[in-house]
Design a protein around this nucleic acid. Structure first.
Length: 490
RNA sequence: GCGGCUGUGGUCUAGCCUGGUAAGACUCAAGCUUCCCAAGCUUGCUACCCGGGUUCGAAUCCCGGCAGCCGCACCA
């Protein structure tokens, strides 16, 4: 059982994550990454890039701005759809989402209606507060986007982007040409997105500014799927929960109604969590969303959920969304810029498969799943993601051991993220490294002074091996890259 | 946004009811000690969420704000 108070305490004490602007009392929905959190986040992002760009030679990274002009988000539908019409009872003050209230009472689809239209509907059907039958206020449009004024007089309206994807969609055609018209094409990006959540809570899980890592894959169904079919492994096993069903581990090919391009990427996403984040398959599931839960433009939608005790259960950390041609069609129509590509003499607008990851939620998952406070407090992180790969200590602080340990540290620090310490006892230093997830600790003792060998201590087992200083680079590299396990060196 | 609870060194807590200039544990830093898993010793840094009010005097009582937790609502 993860003690989330203890985990939070470690995060603050050691330098991972804490509330932003805290010296002024803080503001809900914003978090800072300290020096260890920043290392962990950078490492996760690097691993994500290596893995997902590695899926295909035509998958690439791009970066686009945080601020988008009004017209972009008008075209994407966010100005109209990314908002809630709120209403409250004038007697008992209870607040409601106006569209839900109207739908409950008169059974009509009010999606996309403006505040004025909803007010008219409420008046027409004489709808009152479901709690106390009191009269309802006029409804109020609440858009989840942060608006910004661009330019000296603010004459250009814009928004902080509510998702990183729109910047990518707008670049589809330029990159299609720059990449010499090769399809399928993948454009990935990592960056911040902003949503003015009504009630951000649960630490880093619902933020107003958060990181997204997204890969948008462009292709034309029936034309460009061969690439995926070749890579697809029907026997790959994934943990899924279908609508109205229990969680079960099955071969991905048993997901019969899904196209291969979808199953291929779904299984690769699952593999990222098991192989790169080292999460137990039992703690990960792919959950199919019902029609109600899915955004209207998503044709197929599975969320990746991880069981996080600190947040009370299964929590969404990523999603695989088949968005069809919705986005490119909208941008072609509103911008007047061609988004279609020539296929057998016709022009076709490509479809999009989106792999979307919440960066902060993924970082939190590593901390939650990795934290143990049984006999000791320790973090079990994948070695290549840990803030430090290796720490170097003198066993005791005399007889030249500290100087020798600095020599070893200097040999390692250009190749690894290394840390050197001499304060307290060696046990204390191991404990400190346990707490921040440093997988390996090297100790210089009296034998080192005779024969230039050192001990390497493993965070998981606390076992030690003895190795010559000259072999440290190779041993650490094979351990961090998982070419060999620690026990194979025992 | 509504209701309930809460806010004290880096972390976690005591003190608050019954106003009189803050205590402990751990952590951290410097040093001593120490031949492998938070030992011990010495010294040291660091706090009453913010603002206003009552009072000779406020961590303590009152009001307002902010933040956090729980519940409701929300989560394109």
């Amino acid at each position: 059982m993860v003690d989330s108070d203890e985990l939070e305490s470690v995060c603050k004490r050691r330098g991972f994550i804490w509330q932003s602007s805290e010296i002024y009392g803080g503001e809900a929905g914003f978090y800072d990454y300290g020096h260890l959190g920043a290392l962990l986040k950078d490492n996760w992002e690097r691993s994500w890039k290596e893995y997902f760009l590695g899926l295909d030679d035509n998958y690439h990274m791009i970066y686009t701005p945080n601020i988008l002009p009004y017209r972009v988000l008008k075209a994407s539908g966010h100005v109209d759809m990314f908002s809630d019409v709120l209403i409250h009872c004038m007697r008992c003050e209870t607040g409601f989402r106006a569209d839900h209230l109207v739908e409950d009472v008169i059974d009509m689809n009010v999606e996309g209606l403006s505040a004025e239209e909803i007010d008219k509907t409420i008046e027409k059907h004489d709808i009152t507060c479901p709690n106390c039958k009191g009269a309802l206020s006029e409804s109020d449009d609440f858009n989840m986007m942060f608006s910004v004024q661009i330019g000296p007089t603010g004459e250009h309206k814009g928004f902080l982007r509510p998702e990183t994807a729109q910047g990518t969609y707008m670049n589809f055609f330029r990159e299609f040409r720059a990449l010499r018209k090769k399809m399928p094409m993948g454009l990935a990006t990592i960056g911040s997105a902003f949503r003015n959540e009504i009630s951000p809570r649960k630490g880093v899980y619902r933020l107003r500014e958060f990181g997204q890592a997204e890969l948008q894959i462009f292709f034309v169904p029936g034309i460009h799927e061969e690439v995926f079919e070749k890579k697809y492994n029907a026997e790959y096993r994934v943990n899924v929960m279908l609508v109205d069903d229990d969680t079960k581990l099955i071969e991905v090919d048993e997901l019969k109604d899904l196209p291969i391009f979808y199953k291929y990427h779904l299984s690769k996403v699952f593999e990222f969590f098991t192989d790169k984040m080292n999460l137990d398959p039992d703690s990960i599931r792919l959950r199919e969303l019902s029609d109600d839960e899915r955004a209207f433009y998503n044709r197929i939608h599975f969320d990746v959920e991880i069981f996080l005790e600190s947040l009370g259960g299964w929590k969404e950390v990523a999603g695989v969304h088949y968005r069809g041609d919705y986005d490119l069609t909208k941008h072609q129509k509103e911008s007047g810029t061609k988004m279609s590509i020539p296929i057998e003499g016709e022009r076709v607008i490509p479809h999009v498969l989106e792999l979307s990851f919440g960066v902060d939620r993924n970082i939190w998952s590593l901390l939650d799943r990795g934290f143990g406070d049984d006999d000791r407090k320790w973090l079990h992180l994948p070695a290549d993601l840990a803030p430090y790969h290796v720490a170097v200590f003198p066993l005791i602080r005399k007889d030249g051991l500290p100087e020798k340990s600095i020599e070893v540290y200097n040999r390692l620090k250009s190749r690894f993220r290394a840390f050197w310490d001499k304060s307290g006892s060696v046990g204390k230093r191991y404990a400190r490294m346990d707490e921040i997830g440093t997988p390996f600790c090297i100790t210089i003792d009296y034998d080192t002074m005779d024969d230039d060998t050192v001990t390497i201590r493993d965070i998981v087992s606390k076992d030690q091996i003895r190795a010559p200083i000259t072999e440290l680079n190779d041993i650490l590299r094979t351990l961090i890259n998982k070419e060999k396990t620690f026990s194979e060196y025992l």
